[in-house]
Amino acid sequence: MSDHIKIRPAEGKWTVRAGAAVMGETTRALEVIEGENPPVIYFPRDDVAMAFLDDSDTVTTCPYKGEARHFSIQTRSKLIEDAAWSYEAPVEDLAAIKGFLAFYADKATVART
């Protein structure tokens, strides 16, 4: 695995909320630490209400992780564009995050509960 990125199980139960809705809860989250950046919590898709997420046209590329697809969240009152991302085919050393979802802190609230 890259020395720049560390992946480890995130201890405890984690919840992601968007608007007033709970989008997901898990005890199987991963904590991804990239360089000096704050850790990012990644949720398994099975633990997220995928029915509220819509594919976005946005695709970004990270030189360390690969290509990320983005998702928008449809709440009762609005669409939160590009609120989450997922690596469908990450670089080989980071295969543990394949298919997991992470959420932008300014668009959803991720907390240990």
Rank of each mutant, 00 (worst) to 15 (best):
A29H: 00
K78L: 11
Y104G: 02
A68K: 03
V110D: 00
P38A: 02
V59K: 13
A49N: 06
P38Y: 02
E11I: 03
A105P: 05
Y104H: 11
A51L: 11
W14V: 00
L94C: 14
D47Y: 05
Y87K: 05
M50W: 04
L94P: 06
K65W: 06
Y87S: 09
K107H: 14
F100V: 12
N37A: 13
P63R: 13
A96Q: 15
A89E: 12
V59D: 04
A18Q: 15
E88N: 10
Y104A: 13
I80V: 15
A102C: 13
A89T: 12
F43S: 00
L101Q: 10
I33A: 07
E25N: 06
V40T: 07
V110T: 02
F71Y: 15
A83Q: 05
V32N: 00
G99K: 15
Y64A: 14
W85F: 14
T26D: 03
G24I: 06
R8N: 12
Y87G: 10
I73L: 03
V32S: 00
F103G: 01
Y64H: 14
E67R: 12
A18D: 07
E25M: 05
A89Q: 13
G35T: 00
A10I: 05
S2D: 10
F103N: 02
A111R: 02
F52N: 14
P9F: 01
F43C: 02
S86H: 12
A10V: 04
V16D: 03
A111F: 05
G99Y: 11
E36N: 01
Y104E: 04
T58M: 11
A49Q: 15
A83P: 08
T15S: 11
L94G: 07
H70W: 11
S77Q: 10
T113H: 08
F52P: 08
Y42K: 02
T61V: 11
P44R: 12
T26M: 04
T75A: 05
F103T: 04
Y42C: 00
T26E: 04
T109C: 11
R28M: 12
T60I: 09
D3V: 08
R28C: 08
K13F: 01
R69Y: 05
W85C: 08
V32D: 00
E11L: 06
G19K: 02
T27V: 11
E81H: 15
L53R: 07
A95R: 14
M50A: 03
V110H: 01
Q74R: 15
E92Q: 10
K78S: 07
V16E: 04
T75D: 08
C62W: 09
G99I: 01
T61D: 09
V91I: 10
E88I: 14
Q74Y: 09
R112I: 02
E92N: 08
G66F: 07
E11R: 10
T27P: 10
T113G: 06
M1N: 09
V32Q: 00
K65I: 07
I5D: 01
M50C: 10
C62D: 12
V32R: 02
E31H: 03
A21G: 07
V59H: 12
E92P: 07
I97E: 03
R17T: 04
V16Y: 09
P90D: 09
A95G: 11
F100S: 12
I73V: 02
D54A: 04
R45L: 15
R76K: 13
V22R: 09
K65H: 14
R76W: 08
